[in-house]
Amino acid sequence: ENVVSAPMPGKVLRVLVRVGDRVRVGQGLLVLEAMKMENEIPSPRDGVVKRILVKEGEIVDTGQPLIELG
């Protein structure tokens, strides 16, 4: 699984990683606000951040690609 998608609609509050960062399974990639709750979106696997597909403040839909892992 190379693309991390939004599990719910919401607003991207914070991106916690940068392109080139090594991440571990379960590590927070970004914080999504949904229904006034902050939800940290975890990495599904170990890898390297290849691309960040959203910006802070952006509104996303369920299933929208957020981050690509390499």
Rank of each mutant, 00 (worst) to 15 (best):
E1M: 15
E1S: 15
N2Y: 11
N2K: 11
V3P: 09
V4S: 01
V4N: 10
S5K: 10
S5V: 01
A6S: 13
P7W: 05
M8P: 14
M8T: 01
M8A: 02
G10D: 05
G10N: 08
K11I: 10
V12I: 02
V12E: 15
V12M: 04
V12F: 08
V12W: 14
L13F: 04
L13W: 09
L13C: 14
R14V: 08
R14Y: 08
L16Y: 11
L16N: 09
V17C: 14
V17R: 09
V17P: 00
V17N: 06
R18Y: 11
V19G: 07
V19N: 10
V19A: 07
G20R: 02
G20P: 04
G20A: 11
R22M: 06
V23T: 11
V23Q: 10
R24Q: 12
R24D: 05
R24S: 01
R24W: 08
R24T: 01
V25I: 10
V25A: 11
Q27W: 07
G28C: 14
G28F: 01
L29E: 15
L30I: 04
L30Y: 04
L30W: 02
V31N: 01
L32N: 07
L32K: 08
E33P: 03
E33C: 14
E33Q: 01
E33T: 04
A34R: 10
M35P: 08
K36Y: 04
E38G: 00
N39I: 10
E40L: 11
I41T: 06
I41H: 02
I41F: 05
I41M: 07
S43V: 13
S43M: 01
S43Q: 05
P44H: 11
R45L: 00
R45D: 01
R45E: 12
D46N: 07
D46F: 10
V48C: 15
V49H: 14
K50W: 02
R51W: 02
L53Y: 04
V54F: 07
V54W: 02
K55P: 03
E56R: 05
E56F: 03
E56H: 04
E56C: 14
G57I: 02
G57Q: 08
G57A: 12
I59K: 01
V60A: 03
D61M: 05
D61A: 06
T62R: 13
T62F: 01
T62Q: 06
G63R: 03
Q64W: 05
Q64A: 08
P65V: 10
P65T: 09
L66E: 15
I67H: 03
I67E: 07
I67T: 04
E68A: 15
E68Q: 14
L69G: 04
